[in-house]
Each structure stands twice: as C-alpha cells, then as structure tokens.
Design a protein around this nucleic acid. Structure first.
Lengths: 328, 328
DNA sequence: CTGTTAGCGCATTCAC
DNA sequence: GTGAATGCGCTAACAG
C-alpha cells in the first residue's frame, strides 16, 4: 500500500501539499494539484483511515447496539441505520446485547477504545447516568430509559396503544385483554398505560386481563393459553408487539377459536411477519425504517457538531387493518 | 483519556515498560509490573486501539457483507458471526450490498482503508479474481462464486435438493414443479440441478416446470400463479428457498387449493418464518447459525495465521417435516 | 501557495 | 530488566 509520502515523492511536492489536495484544505496551485492527482492515480493511492483517525480522533465508524438482530423488529432498523450511515460515508458496527446491560456496557467500552464516533442504542435499559459516562454521542432508539437530555427517537406508544384498544372496542369487542411486554421495559409500560387509559373505567375491566410476556412467540403462546383458560369470555386481545400477537394467534387457533369472528387480535410494530401469518395481522405500525434513519441522521449531526432541531422525536404510528380484526 | 505516557509517568517507568506489561512481551520485574498495574488502575487507563492498529496493522475488526439484513436468512447468520467475533475480541461491521457487485466492491475498498482484518462475504457473485484483489482474508459464505482457493462454507445444496424432491415423490406427488432462485446464483443452480437429478427422466417432467423467481415473496407468488395457470395438474412444489415457498403457499391458497391435500410444498433454508405460516412449512433446513459461526472461526484462523483444516466446508442439511406436506 | 516539523498513542529495536 | 529513540501514515500549525 502506497503512503502519502510515496505520492509526494512521485509528484515532486511535500506531503503537506498532498494532504491539502486530499482534504481540499488550504490553497494549492491548479498545476500542482494536477500533478498530485496524477501521482495518486498512478500509485492507486488511497489514504489510510487509521492514521487519519489518530490525529482526527474520528474514525467514521459508529456502533449500533440491538438486543438481538434475530428479533424481526431489528433488521429493518439496522438496515435503515446502515443505509444512512453508508450514505454519509460512515461505517456501522453491529452489536447484540441480549438485553444484558453488563454486556452492553462492555461492548461500548470496547467501541470507545476503537475511537467510535457515536452510538445508537436500540437496546436495553441503561440509566441516563450510565449513558452519560460514555462521553460519546449517543442516540437512543425506541426501547430505552427516558431522560431529558439524551437524544431519542421513539413513537407515540401510549397514544398508539389507546388507538389500538379503541379500535378493538369499536369492532364490538366486549372484553379485551392486554398481553404486554416485559415489565421493566418503558415502551411496554407506555403501551400498557395506553390500554388502561381506554379500558380502566369500563365495567368489565379487571387487572387480571393484563398479562406480561417476553417478546417471544412461544412464551406469548403459553401466556395466552393460560389467560384464556381463566377468562374464556375474552373476545379481543391487544398485544404488546407483533411477536406476542402472533404467539397469541397460535394459542387461539390451537383452542379452535376462530379469528376474527370469535376473537379479534391487534399487534404493535408492523413487522413483515404480520403479513405472513394467516389471517394477516392487524397492527399499529411504527415507522421502523424512518425511526432508524432519523436516529442515524441525528447521530451524524451530533458527531459533526451541527445543532439538533429537537432532542426528542416521537413519531406517529398507523393502524393497519388486516385479517385478525373484523371489518370496521 | 489517559495515554500510555501518563501511566509511565505515574508509575515512574518508561513507556516501553508499560507497553511490555500491557502486551506481556519481554521481561519485566515483578515489582515494576505491580507499580504499572497500579498506575493503570488508578488512571483507569485503557489502550488506544487506533494507535495500536497503526503499528500493528491490525484493527480487530472484520466486515460482514450480506445482500440485505432484512432478508430473514441473514439475521441469524449475522448473529452467529457476531457472537463468535465478539467471543474472540473482534468487532464486526455490517454492510448491505443489495446484490450489487459495484456497491460491494466499493464497500470493501472502504473497509480496507480502515484496515479491516478480514471479510465474510455472504453476498453476491464476485469473481474469484475480484475477491483475490482484495488482499484481505476472505471467507465466502453460502451464495457465492466457486473457486478452488477461496475458503468457503456452504451446505449440500444439490444433495439437499435431491432429497427434498424425492421426499415429495415419496409423498405421492405426480407432477412436481421447481420454483428456483435467481438464475445467476450458484446455490440456485445447484438446487435446481438436484431437482433435475431426480425428475429429469420421469415421464411427466418437462422444462416448463422450472420457473425462476427472486427471493421475494410477492414475486414468488406471481410466478406461482402463472405457473399453475399453465400447469393446473401440478401437485407438488419444491421451492428454491423458504421465502419463495411462502409466496407459493400464498398463491396456492389464493386459488383455493388445499395444502397439503391437493398440493404439497417444500422449502429450503429453515428460517423461522416457516414456523409462522399456516400450515407450517416443510423445509430442508440448513444449519444457518453453524454456517455463520464456522465461517467466523475460519476467518479468525486466517487472520491469526493459523492453518486451516479445510478450505471448503459443505454442511449437512436436514429435512424438517411440517404441515405443508402430508405425513410420510 | 508550499515545505518543514511536530505530534496523535503505541510497539519495537537497540543500547545500557 | 529497562529506557531512549524511531516509525506507523497522516494532519495541522508555522514559516517562508
């Protein structure tokens, strides 16, 4: 691999000049520039980013932490982040945290040693203090602890949950359960609150209609089975996300209950899998790609010290009516 | 961030000594080591990988190129690669190529400038020469051009395809179509050959029973619709992968044909989505995670100049009988 | 406009 | 055993 020095020799100029044309910094005579460019092409020179990073303190690399890329919500998110990053000349390192704060912190420590320029956290619940100790630009995505001064993009979880629940009501459901996500997750809480906002004061409501499950199909299926055993008269389920909803569908079908005639189900997220199941899943769709892209753009702005319009984006969700609910 | 120099001062030794204890290279008095370690802890020092990389010419970072992380086959692969890499202290950069050789080459060029240690290509069809010009350790995964001297891991595509087709035959299918993957893809060719091996000489066979589709559900659905219009007597479909199989299922169900009674369908890959559809998809499963993990381990060996047992791994596939085929 | 020089943080000879 | 000095490849003053 040729170095800047090789180029400077071949072009008969100093390394500084070569550096100048490389970075378009400072003036350089047109003729000189041509010589340099020629030498560069001749040697097939390409600058060494590592050396550059050592002075710059910037690597053009960011980290993306997800709980598990295998969870269908995250590939689309990752895709969005990577697309934007690539577009701006950044490169993105992928990390799976398994919702393990310890693992996550270690990972970020490692990334810092590598002079990462910033991190997008789409993962577990680190506290605001912990995030601040990173001393690296961070954008927090979706499922993370709230804090006033950490940039974040999320969607209108509570509002969306209300809308989803109301929709079930409008469909004629007379007893709606909520299969919520893991207890310590903020977004799961918010969605649960949204559900409560709508049903809390209805006569049939009672706390036993709320059951927590991990974002795991099998587990959701189990939870649903137990729930329906206790409350056979449930005729509507608002699931904390699409995976849970699909698990619930499975359980319901297993029991020979017909969807949507005897049981309406609505999910949350809008992942592709919802279009794969039969009937297709009605869901409150988050703009997953946009959320990822937005987070990426925010991070880039922070890295490049541009001002942020807002620290906190809360995107709209959208009801997608499909087969698991009756026609309105 | 403290530097090695800060540590050396605090410990009252030279940077060389600190470097020695850091890398366990060369002798250093026990007492001295203690002092250094103490200083390191006191300052909370952690070595700067960028600086280290500049001398080492190693970054502890590898690239993983996939066509599209959004395609359900790749998250599991990516997960495997990342798991192993993390385990060995490497960090992995994710890139989506969109099957675009141009984009892929540019990406790899970029990664080289960043002193990437190696690359896992789970992507498009670069030629062996192109891969060689990278001058970086490369392991090629699954869907790539064959070459004698490029390490590769794949599965027994042809054999698996044969087995799948035979299975359909054994089920009593009397006219089996093959919805193959894109024409330029080697794995699609291999699977197609496997199919041909079994049916070519049967009286009912005829080339019109082979139709190509992208690995895209909608497109596969369209293709299936057209295919069945021309050949309504098809009663078995061997799909080039699970996505195609699911698309085919959709088409078949749309036509009111019952699965598996009137039409048996078998996919290939063993992605999770196959368990989500109804009926659940019978498929020839590849050991996706193992393939990724194996590729990762191979790459690490190459990077660390350890000898490779074999350049070419061809893993076994496994028939998973589920609902889209009749009970044997 | 262009060249010289001094780091960036660390590993590595080569002396002592 | 340990330290001083050199270089990895590049950028950024600072002089001309």
């Amino acid at each position: 691999m040729p170095t800047i020095r090789d180029v400077s020799k071949l072009a008969g100029v100093s390394v500084a000049t070569v550096s100048r044309v490389l970075n378009r910094s400072g003036y350089v005579h047109e003729e000189t520039e041509r010589k340099v460019l020629k030498a560069i092409k001749e040697l097939n020179y390409t600058p060494n980013f590592v050396a550059r990073s050592l002075t710059n303190k910037k690597t053009g690399t960011i980290g993306l932490m997800v709980p598990d890329i295998t969870n269908p919500f995250f590939p689309e998110l990752a895709r969005a982040v990577e697309d934007v990053m690539q577009q701006y000349g950044y490169t993105t390192i992928l990390g799976n945290s398994d919702e393990n704060p310890q693992k996550e912190k270690q990972y970020i420590q490692l990334l810092k040693q590598k002079y990462i320029d910033g991190v997008i956290l789409a993962s577990t619940a680190l506290t605001a203090e912990e995030v601040h100790t990173f001393k690296v630009p961070v954008v927090v995505l979706d499922r993370v602890v709230l804090s006033d001064n950490i940039p974040m993009v999320t969607s209108k979880n509570r509002e969306g949950a209300r809308e989803a629940t109301r929709f079930l009501l409008k469909q004629g459901c007379r007893k709606i359960a909520h299969l919520r996500g893991p207890v310590q997750l903020r977004i799961a809480d918010e969605r649960c609150h949204g559900y409560l906002d709508v049903v809390e004061k209805l006569e049939w409501f009672h706390p036993g209609l709320i059951v927590a499950s991990n974002y795991d199909m099998r587990q959701a299926m189990q939870a649903t089975l137990e729930l329906l055993k206790k409350h056979p008269d449930i005729d509507g389920i608002f699931a904390g996300n699409d995976i849970i909803a699909i698990g619930a569908m499975r359980a319901v079908q297993l029991l020979g209950i017909s969807i949507p005639e005897e049981m309406a189900i609505i999910g949350y997220d809008g992942i592709t899998m919802g279009e794969i199941v039969y009937p297709e899943l009605t869901t409150m769709a988050q703009p997953i790609y946009e959320m990822g892209a937005l987070a990426a753009r925010m991070l880039i702005k922070m890295i490049e010290k541009q001002p942020l319009d807002t620290l906190y984006y809360e995107l709209d969700v959208q009801l997608i009516e499909r087969g698991t609910t009756r026609k309105g």
